Amino acid sequence: MARHPQPRRITLGGREAVALTVEEYEQLMASRRQIGGQSARVRVLGQQVKRTEQLLQDLETLVAAPPERCREQPGAMCADGGTTQADADRGCLRCAVAALLRRHRDSAS
C-alpha cells in the first residue's frame, strides 16, 4: 500500500500552515475540480431520480383503479367496454402496466 506523503508544517506569523510543492498544489487543485464535477453529476442524477419517482407515482395513480369491467385476471381479456380488438388490447396494456408497477413497488420495498 502506498504511503501518503505528510505535508510539511510551518509557522508563519505565529500561525501554523502547510507548505506544498507546486506539483502537490496542482494535484490538490485537480482533485478539487474532479470532486466538484462529480458532485454536480450526483446532484443532476438525484434530480432525475426524483423526477422518475414522481413519474412512476403519477403513472401508478393513472392505472391503479381499474375500470369496473376490467377483470385483471391472468390470461383473461379485459372487458373495458371496447368493441374492437384494439380496445381490448388497450385494456390489457393497462393491466400489464399496473402489474409491472406493483411488481416494481414490491421488489423495491
Rank of each mutant, 00 (worst) to 15 (best):
L62I: 11
R69V: 00
E68G: 12
Q73C: 14
D87H: 10
L62W: 09
L93F: 08
Q85T: 08
M77Q: 14
G82H: 03
G75W: 05
C70S: 04
A86L: 09
M77I: 06
M77S: 13
A76L: 11
A86E: 08
M77V: 13
A65P: 00
G75A: 05
M77T: 05
A64Y: 09
R71N: 14
P74Q: 10
Q85Y: 06
G81R: 05
A76R: 10
G91D: 03
E68P: 12
C70K: 00
R69S: 11
P67F: 01
P67L: 13
V63P: 03
L93P: 01
G82Q: 09
A76P: 05
D89V: 13
G91E: 04
T84A: 11
A64L: 13
P66I: 01
C78I: 07
C92I: 05
P67M: 03
Q73Y: 08
E60V: 06
C92H: 05
C78Q: 08
T84N: 09
E72R: 02
G75S: 12
L93K: 05
G82A: 11
C78R: 01
A64Q: 13
A65D: 07
A65E: 06
L62C: 15
G75Y: 01
D89K: 08
L93A: 15
G91Q: 00
A88M: 07
P74Y: 07
Q73N: 11
C78M: 09
P74W: 03
A79S: 15
C92A: 12
G81L: 04
P67C: 07
R90W: 04
C70G: 02
G82L: 07
T83L: 08
D80G: 12
P67Q: 06
E60G: 15
C78V: 11
A86I: 06
G75T: 12
A76Q: 15
L62A: 15
A76D: 14
R69L: 04
A79C: 12
T83E: 10
L93C: 14
R90L: 07
A65W: 01
L93T: 14
C92W: 01
A86T: 12
G91A: 09
D80V: 03
T84E: 10
L62V: 12
D89A: 10
E72W: 01
M77Y: 06
G81S: 04
A64R: 15
C92T: 06
D89Q: 12
E60T: 09
P67I: 02
D80T: 05
R71S: 15
G82K: 00
C70A: 12
A79I: 05
G81I: 00
L93E: 04
P74N: 13
T84Y: 02
E72K: 02
C78N: 11
R90P: 02
D80I: 00
Q85H: 09
Q85V: 14
A65F: 05
R90I: 11
A65V: 04
A64G: 13
Q73A: 15
P66N: 09
T61R: 15
P74F: 07
D80S: 02
D89L: 06
A76M: 10
D87K: 01
A65C: 11
P67E: 08
G82Y: 00
Q85A: 11
T83V: 11
A76V: 11
G75P: 02
E72M: 09
M77H: 07
E60Y: 14
Q73M: 15
P66A: 13
T84P: 01
R90A: 12
P66K: 11
D87I: 04
